[in-house]
Amino acid sequence: MLLTNNIQSVSDSLVSGTKAAQKRKAVLRRLALLAGVCAVCFLTAHLIMLAALRLPYEDTRLKTDLGGMLVAALLPVLVLMGFAGRRHLWGITLCLLACGAAALTALLPR
């Protein structure tokens, strides 16, 4: 009886330990995904601001303001999509695509 109880308690602690480890692993994975997505999104936003400087207006402040409007709308959506799309990592792929598009617009000669 005592042995059975001991085995039961050991197996319970093992299960809870495994559960905690799984939870920690899931949180770490989420954190890594979020950090990656944020890095790509901030790079995209920076490239959008650079691309905004190419707009055909004289006033630099107007160009950066327009870039800011686009960034404020796009960046949260990209972060959410990047974080939400986990199957086959389609979210972060989308962020990378947006980043690539912004890089091409900002860095290629006109």
């Binding site: 601001m49 400087l53 950066t64 800011g68």
Partner: peptide
């Protein structure tokens, strides 16, 4: 949105 858009250029200056 408007508050963020107004000051976005301070957070992300248009400088490479």
């Amino acid at each position: 949105y408007t508050g963020t858009a107004i000051h976005a250029r301070v957070l992300l200056p248009a400088q490479s």
